[in-house]
Amino acid sequence: MKKLAVIAFGVLVLSGCATKQYPQAPAVTNEEASSFDCKALDQEIAKAHSVQQEIKRTGDFDGRTVLGFLGDFGIGNGMAKSEATKKAQDRLTQLESLRSVKCKPAL
Rank of each mutant, 00 (worst) to 15 (best):
T29E: 04
S82L: 10
F9M: 13
L14D: 01
Q53W: 11
Q24G: 01
S35G: 06
K39L: 06
E54W: 09
N30Y: 14
N30V: 13
I7C: 07
V6L: 11
I75W: 07
V51Q: 05
R64N: 15
F36N: 07
T19Y: 00
K81L: 10
E32T: 07
A33K: 15
Q24L: 08
G59P: 00
D62G: 09
V51F: 12
Q21I: 02
F61A: 08
D60S: 07
V13R: 04
I7R: 14
L12I: 09
R57L: 10
I45M: 04
S34K: 15
V11T: 06
A88Q: 09
L12F: 06
D60A: 08
A27W: 12
D62L: 04
K20E: 07
T65E: 02
V11Y: 06
L12Q: 05
Q53Y: 14
K47M: 00
L70I: 11
I75S: 09
L70F: 08
D62T: 11
G16C: 03
T85G: 03
S15F: 08
V13L: 10
F36K: 12
E83P: 00
F61S: 04
G10L: 14
R64M: 15
G71C: 09
I45K: 05
A80V: 00
F69I: 15
K81V: 00
F9D: 02
T29W: 11
L41I: 12
N30E: 14
E44P: 05
N77I: 04
T85L: 05
S50A: 08
I45C: 02
A33H: 12
V13Y: 03
Q43D: 06
I75K: 15
T65H: 03
A5D: 06
G68V: 13
F73L: 15
F36P: 07
F69W: 14
Q52G: 07
G59L: 06
D72M: 03
Q43I: 00
A27Q: 15
H49R: 12
L14F: 11
V66H: 06
K87D: 08
R64P: 09
Q52P: 02
A27L: 12
K39P: 01
K81C: 01
K2Q: 10
I75P: 04
L70D: 02
E44K: 14
D42R: 04
G68F: 10
G59I: 09
V66C: 04
G78E: 05
T58W: 02
C38M: 08
E31S: 14
F9R: 08
V13K: 00
H49V: 05
D72L: 05
E31L: 13
T29V: 04
K56Q: 13
K47S: 02
Q53C: 01
M1W: 13
P23K: 05
K3E: 13
G71Y: 07
S50R: 10
V13M: 08
E54V: 07
Q52L: 11
Q52A: 12
S50N: 09
P23Q: 02
M79A: 08
E44G: 01
Q89P: 07
A84I: 01
V51S: 03
V6Q: 10
F69G: 06
K56M: 12
